[in-house]
């Protein structure tokens, strides 16, 4: 599904990613961990196609197609979804209106007509129940005055609505209390299938108790310095990141 080869990226001429190699197959869950400033969020943004980030070397393939030249919305149309670490406020635009616009934009890109209102309502009801979202929540302005938990739940709600091929969850666990974490993780697990893939970016092992990864990668200084199974996450939880840094610097 996703193949990243020797990816170098910089922002404002500062190199952040320095040669990432990663392959994610359909049906897999990958966790990317690492200390602050290691380039985790940058990697997510680069895959999603944020313009400020310049790919200086290497390639990103989605289903064998080089997506480097594609605009962010075109990548989204191809099934890439990013759950933002800090979801953005859009005052005056309701959660419902936003997701409706997004769904119809994706349908249009596929040559489909707008989703009929009846189907849209049904889908919204179904997915909001899955994430235990209150109906009143749906009429609120997007992310405006939302608590940390509400923001993250709304991200996963959008993911559930859009049914992406590749979902990247950037620090989805930050700002969540344990109940919200369980709901969000449940939602992600229910959406998981053999046809899609998930990349979980996280600082802590906590989320991985709920969304169990097939592979864990450690990102440090813009490179993946260690990969392993889910037990690697436990090891990191116990020992912290210092031993990794030492290994790399040795």
């Amino acid at each position: 599904m996703l193949k990243i080869e020797n990816l170098h990226a910089s922002v404002e001429d500062k190199a952040i990613l320095r040669g990432i190699n990663l392959e994610v197959k359909a049906g897999e869950v990958h966790a990317i961990m690492g200390p602050n400033g290691s380039g985790k969020s940058t990697l997510a943004s680069v895959i999603a196609g944020k313009e400020e980030y310049e790919v200086t070397e290497g390639s990103i393939f989605l289903n064998d197609e080089d997506i480097d030249e594609l605009a962010a919305e075109e990548r989204a149309h191809k099934g890439i979804f990013l759950s933002f670490q800090y979801p953005i406020e859009i005052p005056g635009v309701s959660v419902t209106n936003f997701i409706k616009t997004a769904i119809n934009a994706n349908r249009k890109a596929k040559g489909l007509d707008d989703m009929p209102a009846k189907d849209m309502l049904k889908l919204i009801r179904e997915k909001s129940e899955l994430l235990e979202i209150d109906r009143k929540f749906l009429s609120r302005s997007l992310n405006e005055g939302f608590s940390g938990g509400e923001k993250k739940r709304n991200e996963i709600f959008q993911m559930a609505m859009l049914e992406p091929k590749l979902a990247i969850l950037d620090e989805t666990d930050s700002g969540l209390d344990i109940d919200a974490l369980r709901i969000v993780a449940n939602g992600v697990n229910k959406l998981k299938s053999k046809d899609n893939a998930v990349i979980v970016i996280t600082h802590y092992q906590r989320l991985l108790d709920y969304i169990v990864p097939d592979f864990v990668h450690v990102l440090y200084n813009g490179r993946i310095v260690k990969s392993g199974g889910k037990e690697l996450a436990h090891e990191l939880e116990e020992k912290g990141y210092d031993w990794i840094k030492e290994e790399v610097n040795a």
């Binding site: 962010a72 989204a76 616009t101 934009a105």
Partner: peptide
């Protein structure tokens, strides 16, 4: 970018 990422 947030909108773009959602396909808009």
């Amino acid at each position: 970018f947030y909108c773009n990422q959602r396909g808009i």
